[in-house]
Design a binder for these strands. Structure first.
Length: 307
RNA sequence: GGUGCCAUAGCUCAGUUGGUAGAGCAACGGACUGAAAAUCCGUGUGUCCCUGGUUCAAUUCCAGGUGGCACCA
């Protein structure tokens, strides 16, 4: 047990770097449990293409939020925040510290800093706004947003449909400007957070990514994707590894091309993750090959708090 | 060995009637408050093979060299 506050180790890094393997070793060695902050490993149907931990790996250490929902479910970052806090209570009670591991930056931040309370948008409004976007394009929604929330309009990325749609949705369903919900406040958490970033030489990372994609193909990614081909429009399936396979099934590209695109899109995803995680200056970065250093660092953090 | 063609970005190639160069793909940088593995924005990164010659000026023309390809021996 820790002396004062409980402690959360947050392990982040680009896809394919080896977060899963490392975190299992750490959780076993230090004796605690793992919560996943990977927005695609939540889906129980997606195993191969998301490189979810295997059954053997799951048996080694208790994992949370892996395969906890279906691709047909609606899930979001706020639900994630609540789920995490609930699960953490249990883990802290048993061990006093826990590991959060995953590459979805927005989700990690939602847990660490909190996210503003915004009422859910009802399905009708969401559909109406989407329909308008599809029929009239982004211009029309931009025009609306300018009237509904000039403050947000001034700062938002006006070329990004998702941002505009979301803002208009919230304005319409709540009757208040979207920006009024943004407090900019960091939530105070009843636990301490230590962030560990994993990185390595870019070329090595890319080799690992390529090898992992080849492995997914061997493991049967094509079959896994084919099972859900008829649901390809689900948001949960707008995911690297699946969307390229769907293009192949559509007859738009060859299988070889699909594999090549999965590799490329995974590389691009990894870069976006690195850009996101680089913003948080409190993150302590390690090379994935220096696992002893990481171990010693965690040991040290625990020792400080144990007396 | 001879003849011809080629040599320009990481790759495939375009181009400059002589004024130091540009496409596609790849790559790189960034943003991010409830669908985030999503979505969006930005960036040419170059001894134009080497050495000489002609010229105010050579990646471009000429000569030689090197490397590659093709054909003939």
């Amino acid at each position: 047990m820790l002396k004062n506050k409980n402690l959360l180790f947050v392990i982040v890094g680009p896809t394919g770097i080896g977060k899963t393997g490392l975190s299992i070793r750490l959780a076993k060695y230090f004796n605690s449990e793992i919560i996943s902050s990977d927005s695609r490993q939540f889906y129980r149907e997606l195993k191969i293409g998301t490189a979810a931990p295997s059954q053997n790996e799951l048996n080694e250490v208790s994992h949370h939020l892996i395969g906890n929902i279906s691709i047909f479910d609606y899930y979001n970052v706020h639900k994630f925040e609540l789920d995490c806090l609930r699960i953490l209570d249990g883990i802290f009670e048993k061990y006093g510290f826990a590991f959060l591991v995953g590459g979805s930056g927005l989700y990690v931040d939602a847990l660490c800093n909190g996210i503003d309370d915004i009422p859910d948008v009802d399905a009708d409004t969401r559909q109406r706004v989407l329909d308008r976007f599809n029929k009239e394009g982004i211009e029309s929604l931009r025009f609306d947003l300018k009237k509904l929330d000039p403050e947000h309009y001034a700062t938002i990325d006006l070329k990004n449909p998702k941002r505009i749609i979301r803002a208009v949705e919230v304005c319409l369903s709540t009757g208040k400007p979207f920006s009024t919900f943004h407090t900019g406040n960091q939530r105070k958490r009843p636990f301490e957070i230590v962030k560990i970033g994993l990185n390595q030489n870019r070329q090595e990372l890319y080799s690992r990514i390529d090898a992992r994609v080849e492995l997914m193909i061997e493991q049967g990614l094509e079959n896994e994707a084919r099972q859900f081909y008829k649901h390809k429009n689900l948001n949960s399936l707008n995911t690297v590894g699946y969307k390229e396979m769907f293009e192949y099934f559509d007859g738009e590209i060859s299988k070889e091309k699909a594999i090549e695109l999965i590799k490329r899109n995974t590389r691009r995803y990894a870069k976006r993750q690195l850009a996101w995680f680089a913003r948080d200056k409190s993150t302590r970065w390690f090379d994935i090959n220096n696992q002893n250093e990481i171990c010693e660092f965690i040991e040290g953090e625990l020792r400080i708090r144990r007396r």
